[in-house]
């Protein structure tokens, strides 16, 4: 069971539900060790679903009022996709694994950040005019991983700025404070608008 406020995704039953509403069926054959992500905005949610554990990922846009589940992003093969929101538009973090791992952040299908290698799984969020995500800006060529930081990305220019080095975790933006909660640390970053 994966929860995000009043929204619950039940991997065993392959359903998602809001509050006491009847559950909506989704194809969520994730490995329970790595359940899918859920981003919620009002009456809709972006849900990570998959046709197989660690492979064939999809992002579904769930409309709890209309009770619909629409696929808005997908690819076949090993990897994962998670969806977030930016100015009301879906923003996807897409990780392709396999022999040549490659990661991309896509806004309206356009890549605003791309790197060879692997990146931490996490829902990117918007803050003003920038997208925030926990990323490794310089993954090692052999291991495909690297030290991670809270990174601001300008979707228009694709410019990136590492704000503070920290461990990956869910990002929560409240006002001018960003909280990233990893397994062993919770970091609050106070942002200054320039």
């Amino acid at each position: 069971m994966v929860c995000c406020g009043p929204v619950r995704m039940d991997l065993a039953a392959q359903t998602i539900a809001r509050g006491d509403d009847a559950p909506i069926a989704i194809e969520a054959r994730q490995d329970p060790v790595t359940p899918g992500f859920v981003a919620v905005e009002g009456a809709r949610a972006l849900v990570t679903a998959s046709r197989a554990p660690h492979a064939d990922p999809r992002v579904l846009e769930i409309d709890f009022d209309a009770r619909t589940a629409k696929r808005v992003a997908s690819f076949d093969g090993p990897g994962w996709i998670v969806g977030g929101w930016f100015e009301g538009r879906p923003l996807f973090a897409e990780q392709r694994l396999g022999a040549t791992p490659r990661f991309a952040l896509r806004l309206d299908g356009r890549a605003i950040f791309e790197r060879d290698g692997t990146q931490p799984a996490g829902v990117p969020v918007g803050y003003g005019a920038v997208v925030l995500a926990v990323l490794a800006l310089e993954p090692d060529a052999i291991t495909g991983t690297g030290p991670t930081a809270l990174v601001a990305i300008d979707p228009a220019s694709r410019a990136t700025r590492a704000l503070v080095e920290l461990a990956p975790g869910p990002i929560d933006v409240r006002g001018d404070e960003v909280t990233v909660e990893g397994a062993r640390e919770r970091v609050v970053v106070e942002l200054a608008r320039g």
């Binding site: 060790v33 990146q119 799984a121 090692d140 052999i142 495909g144 990956p168 397994a183």
Partner: peptide, 29 residues
Amino acid sequence: DVDYNGNPTDNGGDRAHYAVIQGYFDDAS
């Protein structure tokens, strides 16, 4: 402890997973 990419992480054991180590080497990193 495994992350979403199948690589080691530190999540307190919530994602315990087994692997086979096949070798090692040294490089610049």
